[in-house]
């Protein structure tokens, strides 16, 4: 679907001043910056090319050249300066800065605060969005961010909850995400040759690896993955299970207001599934696979035996 006239107008008004400061930019790059297709950018440019001031002789039109996919603006007419920021643009930027600030414990946090003050000077409206972030749990954040930026590896010692063991791994950090107050690291684990997710608060040590320093022996055990169809019946009171595990939920059936919903999961570590379901004490019921039902019940019996 093509954009509305209003969206296109807004974009055109932003495009001209941007081009003025980025002379000779390629349309491919422009499309990326403005988040639209290259075809759309080309159509926008053709259109802008025909706009100008009353009179509309070549002297009064916006003067623009595009050759071989590169664009130059020589006369922007009255569109020299970018438009002022909208409330939502300003809010989004300030919230982004809030977030970045909360995730840093170094001197950059101070720089960000100064920058925010500077931007707020010109703000005539209140900022309706507040960011509150736990400051803990970020010990290794900076090392990991550095590794992500440089695409380099780090050596971590990790406590695995599922396998209940301590392992040393060489990983290539890919991204960090935050869920339910906990920072997670997504990384390619060179040691187990697979994509892995690590909780930052379970990383015991973390150091950048210089050069190639392979950890040859993998100290951990292999995990067993549940690859077949996994379906769970989740009661309303266990709703947070779905919220906290959005990344592995492939489908939910039943409306949100019903007492129970049916949840289908992506392939997942068997041990993780057993332990998680067990903790909800019957609020989550395994529908499939059947083999899992017995495993969970056996585990429950083993626990109860301790107290009998």
């Amino acid at each position: 679907m093509s954009d509305s006239a209003l969206e296109r107008t807004a974009r055109a008004l932003d495009l001209v001043p941007y081009l003025l400061e980025h002379q000779g930019i390629s349309t491919t790059e422009l499309a990326k910056v403005f988040g639209v297709s290259e075809k759309q950018i080309n159509e926008d440019l053709v259109l802008i090319h025909m706009c100008g001031l009353p009179g509309y002789t070549p002297l009064e039109l916006i003067e623009m050249y595009y050759e071989d996919g590169f664009v130059t603006v020589s006369d922007p007419q009255s569109l020299k300066k970018p438009r002022k920021m909208s409330r939502s643009e300003m809010t989004s930027l300030l919230v982004s800065l809030d977030l970045m600030k909360s995730l840093r414990s170094d001197e950059i946090a101070g720089e960000i605060a100064e920058l925010q003050d500077k931007l707020r000077q010109n703000m005539i409206f209140e900022n309706p969005i507040v960011v509150v972030q736990n400051s803990g749990n970020q010990e290794f954040l900076q090392v990991l961010e550095g590794a992500i930026a440089k695409s380099s590896a780090v050596k971590i010692v990790y406590l695995s909850g599922v396998k209940d063991e301590r392992s040393e791994r060489e990983v290539f950090p890919l991204s960090i995400y935050l869920s339910n107050g906990v920072n997670y690291l997504n990384a390619w684990c060179q040691t187990s040759k697979a994509d892995r997710t690590f909780r930052l608060d379970r990383i015991l040590s973390c150091e950048p690896l210089s050069g190639i320093e392979h950890i040859d022996k993998f100290s951990g055990t292999k995990s067993e993955i549940e690859t077949g169809l996994i379906r769970l019946k989740v009661a309303r009171a266990a709703r947070n299970f779905v919220e906290e595990n959005r990344t592995i939920v492939s489908q939910t059936e039943g409306s949100e207001s019903e007492e129970e919903i049916l949840v289908t999961l992506n392939p997942i570590d068997t041990e993780w599934l057993i332990r998680s379901v067990l903790g909800y004490g019957g609020l989550i019921e395994v529908v499939e696979p059947e083999a899992l039902v017995e495993k969970i019940k056996n585990r429950a019996r083993a626990i109860l035996e301790l107290y009998s």
Partner: peptide, 17 residues
């Protein structure tokens, strides 16, 4: 949902030279 407005905000700042 905040990405497009953050992006268009930053584009404007990038148009200041």
């Amino acid at each position: 949902i905040l990405a497009p407005t953050a992006q268009s905000g930053i584009r404007k700042l990038q148009s200041l030279g």
